[in-house]
Design a protein around this nucleic acid. Structure first.
Lengths: 321, 321
DNA sequence: CTGAAAGCGCTTACAG
DNA sequence: CTGAAAGCGCTTACAG
């Protein structure tokens, strides 16, 4: 269990034992072998705190999420965690989850500074939040999930929102729909803006009703839409969650999906499968995107890489709507 | 930034500075004041790795989740994280998320042993998984989310599943329903078993159809139920997710909810609100339960508390179904 | 109540 | 290639 023990059993010094543990290539083959044997026979596990103290690396990254209210019912969380875990786990890096609460936005910053965290991934950050700016100013490793509202020099990964919206438009048009509408996301977010702009570029005369990505807002927006534009026959609903709320409203008004009204969603989250019928939607590869965020963050930590952005291409998943 | 600096500015020794930082009560008031001033003027933040090295405490706990496939679409994750965060954050304890992947179940155990984690909360552990047993055997701090299938001496927190099922039964009976059924959860889990047993205790002649808590299984089970028992007028669906899948099937068969068939779910997760109509359901206070798990775990870590179990009472949330 | 000193378990120049 | 030694930043008996 103790490093001295390992060294003694292997007949070498502690320094050599340490070198073997850390995979240094400047160790004689026979000594390396002896040490490896000693390690497995003693069941030795190096103490991370001691290592961190000298290497100045915590081997932990933070995933900073919005508050509980905004996360509840969010179908992405598990996928994001899964994607980050996939790259972080093999490296022995811990993923620490920080859900924003009242007065705790500075926690990540402080953890970074005191060496408890090597970097952070920021999800759904409020544009008014000063913390990201301070992280960048301090030169600390940080990656954003999604393009920031203001163009700041920060690494982020996103899906090509505009292209996704175009995919939805093309689908609706190829179905021969002529009275087309869209239910938007919040217009103070890049995703909300881009999905609308991308759609209007393809369907300039689309009817626009505003939502905020939640199921509740999808239902309300659909009520609006039906009364404003009763002959609507195709709608691009810019999140699966909103589609989930909107489709029952159509049913209640006696419209069949997709016969009377065709629907295309956005996300391809688990919410797409709880729609009835199952939702045709624009797929965002969330898990892969999360994995890429982790990779970018680790690059920044280990080799202070330049600021970049990586954009994934969306695809259309055709189901029953 | 460095502890020497703080000590020098305050005109005391490093030991005294350290005592103030750690809130020792054996420090003269005036010195304490000087140190506090020096800390804030220098912006000093103690290094956690160094502290961990000597206190042998990582100030981090693990939340061990099932694999991605089982977590996808799980509406509880955000609530659990939120509840744990609520107690852990003020204590400066990190929450590290470990999503089980192939060949990684031992990670938590190894982290615990090498002092990277002070304890773990295990969620939805596979009954066949040997890891929990080894954790207990090693005397490591661990808390289970939900009663274990086999009675093992381990601390857990759960909801009173039987009482919850009884609540559902009483609701259906009070509505005057006479042809009552239930869609069960997996019968190899305590929750699945208890919700069925509790319901049958109240409605011995209930029709029983099996599900596995997923939306997909809810839909399938409801198809079965309608053909087996076309005059059913009330059903206890033992998870909100299953209800989410089952209700559209009823609509498709022309049954109105709740007029023709009344539905009671279980969980009161976000899935209850995406049902149409909104779901009447048995509420499990997941966030409070998660907070309690964290508290129990911390007690074990700091004072090796005895094994206990704490059971929360469910309540009925009446909505539109 | 306070300070000098030892020690927690590692890594890594520095000699050899 | 290898080992003796210093040092990472803390805490905590131990004297005083």
């Amino acid at each position: 269990m103790t490093p001295e023990e390992v060294a003694r059993v292997a007949g070498v010094s502690r320094a050599t034992a340490s070198r073997v543990v850390n995979g240094a290539c400047t160790v004689d083959e026979s000594l390396r072998h002896a040490v490896e044997k000693a390690i497995s026979s003693t069941g030795y596990l190096p103490n991370i705190a001691a290592r961190s103290l000298v290497t100045r690396r915590a081997h932990a990254i933070g995933l900073v999420l919005p508050d509980e209210r905004r996360m509840l019912g969010d179908p992405h969380l598990a996928s994001v965690v899964s994607g980050v875990t996939r790259v972080v786990r093999p490296l022995g890096i811990h993923l620490v989850l920080m859900m924003t609460g009242p007065g705790t936005r500075e926690q990540a910053l402080s953890d970074l500074r005191r060496g408890r965290l090597d970097g952070v991934i920021l999800v759904h950050t409020d544009p008014a939040d000063p913390v990201p700016g301070r992280l960048i100013a301090a030169g600390l490793p940080v990656v954003l999930a999604g393009r920031p509202l203001q163009p700041v020099p920060i690494t982020y990964v996103d899906v090509n929102q505009t292209a996704g919206a175009a995919l939805a438009a093309q689908r609706l048009k190829s179905l021969g729909r002529t009275r087309i509408a869209t239910i938007t996301g919040p217009q103070d977010t890049p995703a909300g803006q881009d999905r609308l702009a991308g759609f209007l570029a393809e369907v300039p005369d689309a009817v626009v009703v505003h939502g905020d990505f939640t199921g509740q807002s999808g239902a309300t927006a659909m009520e609006d839409l039906i009364s404003t534009c009763p002959d609507v026959d195709g709608v691009f609903i810019t999140s699966d969650l909103m589609a989930n709320g909107a489709i029952p409203v159509l049913h209640r008004h006696g419209r069949k999906v997709p016969d009377d009204v065709a629907i295309v969603g956005f996300d391809d989250s688990s919410a797409a499968l709880t729609c009835e019928p199952e939702l045709t939607t624009v797929r965002q590869p969330i898990t892969d995107m999360a994995a890429e965020m982790a990779r970018q963050l680790i690059r920044q930590i280990t080799e202070d890489a330049p600021v970049t952005s990586v954009i994934f291409e969306p695809s259309l998943v055709i189901r029953g709507s």
